[in-house]
Design a protein around this nucleic acid. Structure first.
Lengths: 193, 193
DNA sequence: TTTGTATCGGAACGATAGTTCCAAAATAGA
DNA sequence: TCTATTTTGGAACTATCGTTCCGATACAAA
């Protein structure tokens, strides 16, 4: 009976994600979203709720996308160092092409909105834990299979690489010399030795 | 002849810095500043200019403070690894005491306001260059004096440690387990080996 | 003490924030 | 084709945004 929606929910969420990702929560107004997405204010509120709810959904979508591509990148490369190299290389590619200057939505959100809303903070902590666990498992498998030879603690290495990765996503926003970032990655990966 | 100011300019700038540092540029309103600082709106505008100008001055003050304490920490410790250890330890101390959850004002500003105003971006690039140079010189001195034994490139190590440091300041906002951060530092400093 | 000048307190400005509401439009089923 | 139901477009609401203005105040110099 009802009239059908004239937009695709996922597609709109993607556009909202892009804008929040680029400008952050506070600098993105509902009007910005309306203009950028091209749908009516009322449609946003009816479909997603208020600004915070929309942000949450957009952020959730980013997390899902990232975690999935993260898993793909690592699991498609049996050599641990190469796997991390491939992951880190994505950041450099963004700088090289100049296509994406938005940094990492998660990092941006941590620095903008923590301390603040407790629910969001929990989500961020959980996201960090999942990523660390992913890194750690990947490293442990490398050690077990003999691909990696190190006496260091896998979990600690995982957290260190994750920290370095987060730092890289900050630096990539202002450091436009890709070779400098490449050198950093090469040195950073010696952590695995 | 004129009436004297009823507040200390530096002191007020410090309070403005605290607020911008904690909440970021966009989430900090003039009213927030008026309430937190305790002076009148007109006094802010008369003394510092508009919101952007005040932010710039507050940010400049943070940079000066940080660079000075950075220099002090490194120059007071001849052992390079210990020097960096001491520097990184400050981040952990913030987490341990729970006193400062604001992260790093510079990192926060990069993730919030880049890409954006070109003048600010230049300032951030310059700040990064100064810090890298400081790190690099410290490392080079360590190599020259025989305190450090490594075949790696000092500038690249400097940038890597700076990147790791930036990442640490992000992670410290959500990772409340200090020992995890300590482990990361220990592993991160093996970059100097 | 008087005078001139800058500051202070607070009201007020227009613009924009996030949000709500409602009449008009549109479509899936009867 | 008609009807019931939902979406849509856009006006409108209140609150707050950054900023300006001005009369009252207070101090340094004469």
């Amino acid at each position: 009976m009802p009239r059908t929606k004239q937009f695709d929910e996922k597609e709109v969420l993607n556009k909202a994600m892009e804008l929040f990702w680029e400008k952050g929560f506070h600098a993105t107004s509902i009007q910005d979203l309306v203009s950028h997405i091209g749908i009516n204010r009322a449609s946003i509120y009816d479909t997603y709720g208020d600004k915070t709810a929309l942000f949450d959904k957009a952020f959730e979508q980013y997390r899902n996308n990232s975690l999935e591509s993260l898993r793909n990148i690592l699991h498609s490369e049996p050599d641990v160092k190469k796997g991390f190299q491939n992951l880190f290389q994505l950041v450099i590619d963004d700088v090289k092409t100049g296509r994406c200057t938005k940094g990492c939505f998660v990092v941006n959100t941590i620095t903008e909105l923590v301390p603040g809303d407790a629910a969001l903070q929990n989500k961020l902590v959980q996201n960090s834990a999942i990523t660390e666990a992913l890194f750690a498992e990947y490293i442990r498998n490398g050690i077990t299979s003999g691909n990696l030879t190190t006496s260091k603690n896998p979990e600690a290495m995982a957290f260190t690489l994750f920290t370095l990765f987060s730092g890289l996503r900050v630096m990539a926003k202002i450091e436009q010399n890709p070779s400098k970032l490449s050198d950093t990655i090469a040195i950073g990966l010696t952590i695995l030795d």
